[in-house]
Write a protein that binds this DNA or RNA. Structure first.
Length: 906
RNA sequence: GGGCGAGUAGCUCAGUUGGUCAGAGCGCCUCGUUUACACCGAGGAGGUCGCGGGUUCGAGCCCUGCCUCGCCCACCA
């Protein structure tokens, strides 16, 4: 027998198989059988270089590897470009933490030393994440691995910046931006998150100059009073009309500011009067522009106050808030405080409150790029799956604001702009040594670096060698599918499209597939503080990579979040085991029958790529179950292929799963035992050929979903298969995708009926509590004689031996067997000899019920078919209903006769 | 304030041109060792498909209103 253990051991196979694949070079597109095949390319969403594997990674690897393996098997030159992202803020934070633990800081080290340490860190931890992607089975071409800060990509970033700069698409300016005091850098609008929080709303008096009167004002950030440059009221507000044009005094500072009127003030909110702080509030900034108000900035990068804050200079923003309020209370300038719920802006990374600050930063003029990016999707040149995200995409691009791309960090691509001592500003593809305008050699590079997303926005082409016209770029660009989480549609996807269109004049991919977030079992977001984080490595340790992958692929739908239920992972591990054991069965039989059971295999029997129609010869060759399973296989191949081409991965996987488990294992393997037990060598041979063929094709269908177990099983099958498998490829992963053959409706119909009959008998046996091992005699009446049913039904349903003439298959009978239990299924009647086991009264009730049901069906169907349904509904649908009606008539007749017979017997 | 998604068996979820669509897995109940598999096999219980209208011969599936939960965008101090 076989040496395969009873249970599939993924621990013993996964790593070995991955190394086998990778070392064979099959992850490279150059390994394609046809060197001129059409390429299929995916650029990986680059994980943070120092990141750790989480379920989001597992999700994208599952989907992208599925796509890549599928297209590879279909013969495309499949290329999955791997790589990592330097992830500016995230990585710099980690390095700074390390330095803090060492008792030093980036400031103490200086820029150069800091970067040296950062690269050291990257070299140490940068390999971990890619190692973990391998663990997931990712069939990336690792020889093409890239990193956003490597030389090639840095050159791409430089080129991109210079081009935009020269076109006037990049500018430097002083504006109100989002400032992160913790990170001490500007962040873009997207990096600010608003959370509803309980804060305090402070009401106070704005005193007027030369008067005892005051204007009541409310604010949630009292410290910004110090930067006020006006008090504004609504022009139509009678309460405050008299103050317009007068002068107010900033509390404690007694700085004189005007009282102005502006439509932007809401009369209903707070006191109806507004303090205007152009230096620290976006709306106020606009009001300030309208009224030409001065802009005062009271905050330094670390959120301590500047000299403008007078006595509060040097204090932290929150300390200053308290102190100022205290002082104002002393000065009787306060009115009251009250709790207030509002959206507080916090940085995505650090989590501290973002401060709107006036600052000089670099921006990309985004509108022209956004318009192009909108158009390309509207034109259908890029398709987004699921489609609803197109609306979200359009909405964001339509309201886009210029992109702040400078960051006050050290870890990243330094902005390639230099300033000379004479105030000239210039860029260059190469680092300059002197000013191109005045020739001064006293030049200094801008200290800032670029937003991480600037470099990732170039990813699909920078990884292929752009801006050079490399072979890779020419061959593999544009890529095909961009697969990633919907949460980075704006951050990353939109920017790749904008920059891709601008630099390469082509959409960087034609399809965007967005997956959802992986949540915990009950739909909660996974977080360390909640303690509900599922580590994919732990899951893989326990259930195997295939089980995790299959769960992620079939457990949800595109664009929707997925609640990961461990019980599903467990059941998918069981599925891997099922495949394993089906193979053990097949392989065991191959070995056992090595002597007498086999005869020479001809091409006809092997049929790994049969496209042929169902011929007489074919029908002659294969027994009914084999014809049935081959036909079902062909249908499954057809459907799974269609679903995959339509990006319906979950459906495709489920279908293949159900075929393998529910039809091949549950029925065909069982039925094959009959033939394998017999002594018809030719029949045995054909059944074995079918067992091998269907398993092989099923493994191919499933390989993109569960690559490890399918490869392992396939290798065992290949080794044991002898003449059946001698022309197979070296590995499943490089085998051809199944083409599928014709459908054998006749065989399907017959086996379906057999299955119905067997189910009815099994059901009756359990209901009547017949010993499982006890054989019972039966008569089966089927319209058209199905002699093949006898031995199959005998075996599967444990009916009495046909040779003892206790199992009859008839086309019709005149007298019902005595003391029998009647069962009626569509197209057949069954009489089980259960002498003495049947309670006639109960039995009559049961049949009565079935009779009523049949009558109900008849009434419903007659009504349906007499109405306009028959005219309006499609012909095939009507036909189906007609057939059901005919069957109901037949059932009614049989059942009525039964019931009557039993009533008399009583 | 605007937009989107979800609400289907106890739990986690499928269900794409409206016509066996009322399903799967897990859990539960009864049985069970026949050439693979107890990570198994056979059988079973369990749902008015969130609620109300409407369109249609026919609606989880389309339209409309409402309820609950979640998310995104905007951000009136």
């Amino acid at each position: 027998m076989t040496t395969m253990p009873k249970a599939y051991d993924f621990r013993a196979t996964e790593q070995r198989l991955y190394e086998f694949w990778e070392q064979s070079g099959w992850f490279k597109p150059e390994a394609a059988k046809n060197p001129n095949a059409e390429p299929f390319v995916i650029a990986i969403p680059p994980p943070n270089v120092t990141g750790e594997l989480h379920l989001g990674h597992a999700m994208f690897v599952s989907i992208e590897d599925l796509l890549i393996r599928y297209q590879r098997m279909k013969g495309r030159r499949a290329l999955w470009i791997p790589g990592t992202d330097h992830a500016g803020i995230a990585t710099q934070l980690q390095i700074e933490k390390m330095l803090r633990d060492e008792g030093t800081s980036r400031e103490a080290l200086g820029r150069e030393e800091f970067l040296r340490r950062a690269w050291q860190w990257k070299d140490k931890y940068g390999g971990i994440i890619t190692q973990q992607l391998r663990r997931l089975g990712a069939s990336c071409d690792w020889e093409r691995e890239r990193f956003t800060l490597d030389d090639g990509l840095s050159r791409a970033v430089r080129e991109a910046f210079v081009r935009l700069y020269e076109k006037g698409m990049i500018y430097r300016g002083t504006y109100l931006i989002n400032w992160s005091p913790g990170l001490k850098t500007a962040v873009s609008d997207l990096e600010v998150e608003y959370n509803e929080e309980e804060v305090t709303l402070y009401f106070f008096k704005y005193p007027l100059k030369d008067s005892d009167e005051f204007i009541p004002v409310a604010t949630v950030r009292p410290e910004t009073i110090l930067a006020d440059t006006a008090v504004a009221v609504h022009p139509d507000d009678e309460r405050y009309a008299k103050f317009i044009g007068r002068t107010a005094l900033v509390p404690m500072l007694k700085r004189e500011i005007p009282v102005i009127a502006d439509e932007a003030v809401s009369r209903e909110f707070g006191t109806g009067a507004l303090k205007v702080t152009p230096g620290h509030d976006a709306n106020d900034y606009e009001i300030g522009q309208r009224h030409k108000l001065p802009v005062i900035s009271i905050m330094k990068p670390d959120a301590t106050l500047t000299d403008e804050a007078g006595p509060y200079a040097g204090m932290d923003r929150f300390a200053a808030r308290e102190q100022l309020w205290h002082d104002m209370q002393q000065a009787r300038l306060t009115i009251k405080t009250q709790p207030y719920t509002t959206n507080v802006p916090r940085t995505q990374r650090g989590g501290e409150i973002v401060e709107p600050l006036i600052s000089t930063q670099w921006f990309v003029r985004i509108k022209p790029l956004a318009d192009q990016a909108t158009q390309i999707v509207r034109d259908g040149q890029i398709r987004i799956i699921p489609e609803r995200f197109e609306k979200v995409y359009f909405n964001w691009l339509d309201n886009i604001k210029d992109w702040c791309i400078s960051r006050q960090l050290w870890w990243g691509h330094r902005i390639p702009v230099w300033y000379c001592e004479n105030g000239h500003q210039f860029t260059g593809r190469e680092d300059p040594t002197q000013c191109p305008e005045c020739g001064s050699t006293q030049i200094e590079q801008d200290p800032d670096v670029l937003d991480t997303w600037f470099s990732s926005g170039l990813w699909p082409f920078s990884t292929l060698g752009w801006p050079d016209e490399t072979d890779d770029f020419k061959t593999y660009y544009p890529t095909d599918v961009m697969e990633t989480g919907y949460d980075i549609l704006f951050f990353w996807v939109a920017r790749m499209i904008m920059l891709g269109l601008d630099f390469t004049e082509e959409p960087p991919f034609h399809t965007i597939y967005l997956h959802g977030l992986v949540r915990d079992e009950h739909g909660r977001k996974m977080s360390k503080t909640l303690g509900n984080v599922t580590d994919p490595l732990t899951v893989m340790d326990e259930f195997g990579t295939d089980a995790l992958r299959f769960t992620l692929l079939t457990g949800g739908t595109p664009g929707n979040d997925l609640n990961l239920a461990i019980s599903r992972v467990a059941s998918n591990r069981n599925f891997a085991n099922k495949l394993w054991n089906a193979a053990r069965f097949v392989i065991g039989n191959l070995n056992v029958t090595a002597d007498g059971g086999r005869r020479t295999v001809d091409d006809e029997a092997r049929t790994t790529t049969d496209e042929r129609p169902i011929t007489d010869e074919y029908v002659e060759r294969y027994d009914l179950p084999s014809r049935w399973i081959r036909s079902r296989l062909n249908r499954t191949i057809h459907d799974v292929t269609g679903l995959l081409d339509d990006y319906q991965f979950g459906q495709a996987g489920t279908l293949a799963y159900e075929f393998v488990w529910g039809e091949y294992c549950d029925w065909y393997v069982e039925m094959s035992k009959l033939t394998l037990n017999g002594d018809d060598a030719a029949a045995k041979h054909n059944t074995l050929a079918t067992l091998v063929h269907v398993l092989d094709q099923s493994l191919r269908l499933l390989h993109p979903f569960v690559p490890f177990v399918t490869e392992e099983v396939w290798q065992h099958l290949k080794r044991a298969g002898g003449e059946f498998t001698e022309d197979w490829d070296d590995a499943l992963m490089i085998s051809d995708w199944p083409k599928g053959g014709g459908f054998d409706d006749d065989a399907e119909q017959r086996i379906n009926m057999l299955i119905e009959i067997v189910r009815a008998i099994r059901n009756a046996r359990v209901e009547k509590k017949v010993e499982p091992s006890k054989k019972i005699a039966a008569t089966i009446v089927v319209g058209d004689l199905q002699e093949e049913f006898a031995p199959l039904a005998e075996m599967i349903a444990r009916l009495a031996n046909v040779d003892e003439e206790q199992l009859y298959i008839e086309t019709s009978i005149t007298d019902k067997p005595k003391d029998s239990l009647a069962l009626v299924v569509p197209g057949a009647e069954i009489y089980l000899s259960l002498a003495g086991m049947v309670d006639v009264g109960k039995e009559r009730d049961r049949l009565e019920k079935e009779l009523q049901q049949a009558e109900g069906d008849i009434i419903r169907l007659e009504k349906l078919l007499s109405g306009s349904f028959a005219e309006r509904a499609p012909a095939n649908v009507v036909e189906k209903e007609r057939a059901r009606l005919a069957d109901a008539y037949a059932r009614r007749e049989k059942l009525a006769a039964e019931v009557e017979g039993m009533t008399q017997a009583m």
